[in-house]
Each structure stands twice: as C-alpha cells, then as structure tokens.
Design a protein around this nucleic acid. Sequence first.
DNA 1: ACCTAGTCTGGGATCGCTTCCAGTTTCGTG
DNA 2: CACGAAACTGGAAGCGATCCCAGACTAGGT
Lengths: 336, 336
Amino acid sequence: MTVAPRRQPTLEEVAERAGVSRSVASRALNNAPHVSPAKREAVERAVRQLGYVPNPTARALATRQTGAAALVVSGEDPSIFADPFFAQVIVGASTALEDADLHLMLCLAASDRGRKRVEELLRSKGADGVLLMALREGDPLAGMAEEAEMPVVFGGRPVGVAPRWYVDVDNVGGAREATEYLISRGRTRVAAICGRLDTEAGRARYRGYRDALLGAGLDPLPPQEGDFTEPSGAAATAVLLKQHPDLDGIIAANDNMAAGALRTLRAAGRAVPADIAVVGFDDLTVAQVADPPLTTVHQPITALGREMARMLVAVINGHDPTPLILPTRLVTRSSA
Amino acid sequence: MTVAPRRQPTLEEVAERAGVSRSVASRALNNAPHVSPAKREAVERAVRQLGYVPNPTARALATRQTGAAALVVSGEDPSIFADPFFAQVIVGASTALEDADLHLMLCLAASDRGRKRVEELLRSKGADGVLLMALREGDPLAGMAEEAEMPVVFGGRPVGVAPRWYVDVDNVGGAREATEYLISRGRTRVAAICGRLDTEAGRARYRGYRDALLGAGLDPLPPQEGDFTEPSGAAATAVLLKQHPDLDGIIAANDNMAAGALRTLRAAGRAVPADIAVVGFDDLTVAQVADPPLTTVHQPITALGREMARMLVAVINGHDPTPLILPTRLVTRSSA
DNA sequence: ACCTAGTCTGGGATCGCTTCCAGTTTCGTG
DNA sequence: CACGAAACTGGAAGCGATCCCAGACTAGGT
C-alpha cells in the first residue's frame, strides 16, 4: 500500500496529498494550534502513506536551531578521552539530551585540527549549545567559548574563573573527607598524588588533602604531581617511597593513579593497607577490580553528564540556571 | 531573553563588501575555479573584516550533505557504552572523520526512545553515513540500516550475515591463538568464559577456543556464557570451578571477564598462573592493571574505529571498499 | 579590425521547511 | 439577524548557502 518513492517526499507533497496547504501541514506536524482536527487527521494519513520524514536540515535552516548539542573534550592528545570517566559522562549527557530531542555531537579538541574545528563550530553556531570539559589552565577554548554567542555549560570549572554555567563535583570536600578518613584510622604520614595542577580538579583535590591535614594539626606534603594515568601514579609512588620511607597513607587524585600506586607498592613489598593505606578518587570499575579493592571517593559521573545536559537545555530554552556542585561520597573497600 | 543583537554576516554581505556577486564569493570560499586572483583576494579580505563564517546548515541544505557521520552503539541499556572499548573506537573514528572534515554524532540506541531517534536519523538522512556497532542477534537496527539509503559501515559483523561494508577483528584467530598458547604451555583442561552468544564476537571467540582444543585432540567444554562485564566473569568462574575442580586454564572473551575470573580465583585460593592460567581478550588498561597482569589477545581498537571511519568516508565518496579484518596478537604477561 | 574560443561574472532558481499575515469561516451573543 | 471575536487557512517571504547558465569580457589568431 505504501508507495516507495525514489526521492524523499517533501512537506509540499504531503500537503498536496492531504488537500491542504504547506503551512497547515507544517502546523499539523509540529502540532501547533490553528489546525482543524479533520485536516490534522488528513495530514497524518498523508504522512503515513508517503512515509514522510521531515528534513532536519531544512527545518534547522528555517528555525535557526540545529537540534544538536556538542560535547567538547579538550586535551593535548586524544588519549585523554580513553579515560572511562568520559564514557560515563556521555551516558548521562546522552540520555538527558535525548529527552530534549537533541543530538549529541562529540568533539575531541585534541589536535590543532580538532581545536580549529571546534572554533568553527562555535563561531558558525553549528550546534545549539556546548558542553565543555577538561579545560586546562590557559586553554584557548575557554576564551572561544566566552566569545561565542552560544550557550556553554562547563563540566568542572576551569582553573581560576567561575563561568556562568557549570556543573562540578565537590572535589575539595571529597578529598578532604578521604584524607580525614585516613587520619581517623590513625594514619599520620599521608601523601597526595595529585592530578595535573593545571586543572581545577587536580588543584581542588590537593586543597582538600591539605585542608584535612592542617585541620588535624599535621603537616601536608608538597603535591606529587601525576597526570591522571596509571603509570604516572606508579611513578609518583616510587618517588614518594624514596623521599618518605615512613609513609603510611597515600591519597591519589583518581583511581587510575591509585591503581598505579598499588602496583608500585606491591613491587616494593609494602602491604596495603597494613603498611600503607591507599585511597582513590572516581570510583570507576578499576577501583573494584584492583587488588586490594580501592577505598575511593565516589563521584556521580553519570549524574554530572546528565545535569550538564539538563542545564544546557535550560539555557537554550532561555533560562538562567544556577551552577551546580554535585556531592561526593567515600566508598570504603579494603585498601584503606 | 533571546539575545540576537549582531546577526552573523552572510555570504551576501561578504560579496557586497568585496564588490563581487554571491556566486563569486561562494566560489572563492570553496576555492573553486573561475575566480580571478584579484576578486579572490577581495573576498578573503572581506571575510576577514566581517569575521564571516559560513553557515553549515544552509550549506547542508544546498549541497544535500550534512557534514556529519553518526556512530550508533546498540545495546539493551546505556551501560554497555561504559566499556572503555567504545572510547577507543571513538578516538580512532574521530580522528579519521576529522581528516574528512566530518562531525561525529554519537547515538546510544539503548532505550526505545534512542532507537526511535536512530530510525528517524536513518530515514531522514540526518547524517551522511553511519557507523554501526554492537549489534546483537535479531537487532532491529540491522534491518533499518539495510533499508535506509545511506552508507552504513558495521563495526564487527552482525550475527549470521555479512554486510556489504564492515571492519572486524579476527576473533576466531585471536581466541584460537590464545588457546593454543595455553595448550602449548601444558594446560589440558581449559574452559572458555564466552561473551554473549547473541553477538558474533561472543560466538567467534568461542569457535576459536573450540577449534584449538579440537585441533589438539582435547575436548572443548560447553560455553560458559557471560555478558562481557567483570561480575559476569567472576560468576562464570565460580560455576566453572564447581563443575570442573580440576581446571587448569581459563580463556575469557574479554579482559573485564578475565579480571572477574581473577577475583573469584583469588577468593578461592587458586594461584594464577600456577594452578590456573587465565587469558583475556582486548588488552585494555584493566589487563595491565590486573593482578597478575593479564596475558591477553590484543586487538587494535583504535585502528578499528579509524578504519571504520575511513571506509565510511570511502563509501560516502562513491567508492565500494572491501571489508576489512584486522589482525589480533597475543600479549603475554604473567597470568598465563 | 573581426571573429572565435575560453574565462569570468552575477542574477536567479533551488534546497525543504517555518512563520508571518491578510483574508475567510465559524460561532456565540445580544 | 447582525456583528465582532476567535479560529482557520494558504500564499508568500524568508533562512543562507550552492550552482546552473546566459551573457560579458579577454585574448589570440588571421
């Protein structure tokens, strides 16, 4: 019964077949008012018979809305994206965007080429809004985003400034709680393997560590910087062991580095948690799989993505939502 | 609330400013022939002065090309996407797409809503092409993709049929090699924790295991099915240990499940690899971090994504590339 | 000086949809 | 029964590019 036409049917043809004008057909499709039930029905029938699907591009041109939001992940090279963290953000963002009927474009601003394309996207309004993540200090993307007259929601704050719209996790609080936990269990010589200090997350987590130690009247160690990868955690631990042989606790700025720490400690013959307690941050799969399973600061990553997307949708719809800080929670397993 | 003070300059304005017609300006922009050097220069200057950026939507409408490719990940629920596997595919696909100046749209066809949106995308030609992954047996997406008159490249073959264009990994060969390795090291009672048997990867890897055992004159065990997650690997191992207390080797269909196996074995007091050897598949980070580090079948995941994207670009450009099977390679660490 | 071949140019049609707006119906009310 | 408001309708004007094509202009050959 349904005729398979060569070219895609257009709204014009639908209208003709339904015996109405294009405008009425359009209104019927977008169930806008001012369409009599009879014609609405006729249009629907014609749509069904013709197998009509509206052309998103034409619609976009007319409405000046692309129907898509971009998730931009900044970084020096694409491998940053291999962190399972982003996958979870995407899951959250994707479902929220789906609810708003927006598509998700993914932009890895890793290469120069990638950054250039993001800039073009921003300037050409190639999306209705942008979710911006993993900015480092002095990242040119921050400025571009500012200039672009486009809704931008930040995932995690950029270093130093607080943008108008962002969703972040309570990094300071989480790190503080973890460190306090270590202290409460009698650890007194606790070091921090912190993430890159050119990211706000790296800094904030170190601050949380420092605050906790100072609060307990203990001396914080200077930051031992890693880059959020497992090898960097292993390397940092080696350095720490050499510098402070009497260490009895390590708090890492993420689970990957904590896993690296476990590896080095195992190789060095230090028992975890008997000799040294280790705490991670993120609560990704690796924390559960590690041996021993990691005590870690859980952060609601999927919720982060979801709330970012929701906030973006709100901004797109003309609202002015307030920034959001998501809570963290310490998950105790056996590494501390 | 809508802010629309300074409208973006249009090609028309650029042309006027450069003292040429729209057509010439357009040609100059797309550096097409039939534009004198002088006017080309004038257009470029005008573009610079006005800060003009072409409107991608308008261009898309006129050229009937969206400038985007969609990566569709099928699954029962969004958590499937949490597998770091996909992140790596994305990295590969993203860079290749970047080279072709295509944007990447990410579609998680997990919910009903998600699937419906993918169908719409397919039917409305909302993208220039589609990368389709993680199809299960009887997945409706396969049919939709077939019907849609749109270039579709499969990542991994769907169960049973071989589509026209796909990139896959040598699952059978990889699993066979891993199993043969176990046998060559003197293991004789080897079990397979296989992935979902409604996926081709799950089946193929089991076939590789079976082929190797049969080839060595040993009896393959029936498939112990998992779902590619760590817990399912742990559970499957528990079952195997109960059914076959004399097991001396396990080959898991991916690293996650192998990690689960390690966890159960540790809990059961079996030494790895002394008592039981374990081999994984994928060679993700978890394989390196696991204790003991996993011997596993490395598959070139980023290359998979890259080649899929390249193939898609070829198809979009009117070519008819031949399907590709990427090689795997056994990486020996200490678990076997 | 004239004609031809070749290069440039720019007006206008087109892509498929939304939306404004003026004109037409419909309908309730006094 | 008349009248004004409200509900509908459909023609037409965009949205901002691309691209065809007829005509102008240039240059070279005779």
